[in-house]
Nucleic acid binder design. Structure first.
Length: 267
DNA sequence: ATGACGGATCTAATCCGA
C-alpha cells in the first residue's frame, strides 16, 4: 500500500482553511501535520477536515500563536504532547497510526524561531531555541518498537544549499553554525534520515519558506529550507517519492511556508 | 540591508514570525 505524509506550516489554519482544502483534494495525503495553527483547540475547523475524509484529528493549540495539529484518514491513537522547555507553549504533538502493517509514531514539531540575535546571552529567544533542540536529542528514530517519523517546521536550514546565500546567512538565526551543527547531531545521534536529502542531492538548492517581506518572492527567490520530514531507516528504504510544493507559495493569501510531502510503499 | 509584510488580539497599536 501507498502511504503519503505531508507537513505544512499554515500560519493560521482558520484564515487558510480554503487553500488547505484545495491542497487535500489535489494531493490526497493520508496524514497532514500542520504548524502555527494559531487557534485554540475548540476553534480548529474540524468539520471542514472531516468533510474531506480526514476524520481523525489531534489538535494541540493555544490562543493567537504557535499550535500544531495532525489530521488523518486513518485512526490516530495515543495523542501526546511533550512540553519542551516547560514553557507551556504548543509546539509538539505525537500520534500513532497503522499503515501497511506497520505502527507509525508521528512527531509533529514547531521549533521556536529564535528571534534576531544569535547570542543566547543577549537574546532569550535564541537560548530557548537551543534548549528546545537540546531536549529533542532524547527522541530516537529507533525507539518504542515503532517506526518513528519526525516532521515539522524545525526553523533551521541545515545545509549550504538550504538557503539562498550560505555566506550571508551564517550569522542569521536559522542558519548559524551553532544551530545547523546541533540539528545535524540530533539527526545523526537519533538515527534519523532527512528524507528530502535522501532523494534530492545536496548540490540542488531547496527552499520551503520565502519571506512575506520580499517585493516578489518568486523573482528574488531568497528562501530557506526550514520544514523537514525525518524518518527511521526502515521507512527510508520504503520511500518512493518526495516533493516540495513550491507553487503553493504563489496561491492566493499564501502561507509563507509550503507543504513538504513524502510517499512510502509499505508492504 | 534578506525584507519591511502579514497574522492575532481587549479594533488599535502591539507583539510575533524567521
Amino acid at each position: 500500500m501507498t502511504f503519503k505524509l505531508a507537513t505544512w506550516n499554515i500560519n493560521s489554519v482558520r484564515l487558510r482553511i480554503g487553500i488547505v482544502e484545495d491542497f487535500l483534494k489535489s494531493h490526497e495525503p493520508d496524514v497532514l501535520c500542520l504548524q502555527e495553527i494559531k487557534c485554540q483547540n475548540d476553534q480548529f475547523p474540524a468539520k471542514e477536515f472531516r468533510k474531506l475524509g480526514y476524520e481523525h484529528i489531534a489538535v494541540h493549540g493555544q490562543k493567537g500563536y504557535h499550535g500544531v495539529a495532525t489530521v488523518s484518514r486513518r485512526p490516530l491513537s495515543d495523542a501526546e504532547s511533550t512540553d519542551y522547555c516547560k514553557m507551556g507553549d504548543t509546539r509538539h504533538l505525537a500520534t500513532t497510526l497503522t499503515a501497511g502493517g506497520k505502527q507509525l509514531r508521528v512527531h509533529n514539531f514547531y521549533v521556536p524561531a529564535g528571534g534576531d540575535e544569535p547570542d543566547p546571552k543577549k537574546n532569550p529567544k535564541f537560548g530557548h531555541k537551543l534548549r528546545f533542540l537540546d531536549e529533542m536529542r532524547a527522541l530516537s528514530a529507533n525507539g518504542s518498537g515503532m517506526e518513528n517519523i519526525l516532521v515539522g517546521d524545525l526553523n533551521i536550514a541545515p545545509h549550504e544549499n538550504d538557503v539562498w546565500s550560505h555566506k550571508q546567512l551564517l550569522k542569521v538565526v536559522s542558519h548559524t553554525p551553532q544551530e545547523t551543527e546541533l540539528l545535524d547531531q540530533i539527526r545523526d545521534e537519533g538515527g534519523w534520515s532527512d528524507l528530502v536529502r535522501e532523494k534530492i542531492p545536496l548540490q540542488e538548492t531547496l527552499f520551503t519558506w520565502w519571506s512575506y517581506r520580499a517585493r516578489d518572492w518568486d523573482i528574488s527567490n531568497r528562501g530557506r529550507r526550514l520544514d523537514h520530514i525525518w524518518s527511521a531507516p526502515e521507512l527510508t528504504a520504503a520511500l518512493s517519492d518526495i516533493s516540495i510544493l513550491r507553487e503553493a507559495r504563489g496561491w492566493e493569501k499564501p502561507s509563507d511556508h509550503v507543504p513538504v510531502m513524502a510517499t512510502f510503499e509499505l508492504d
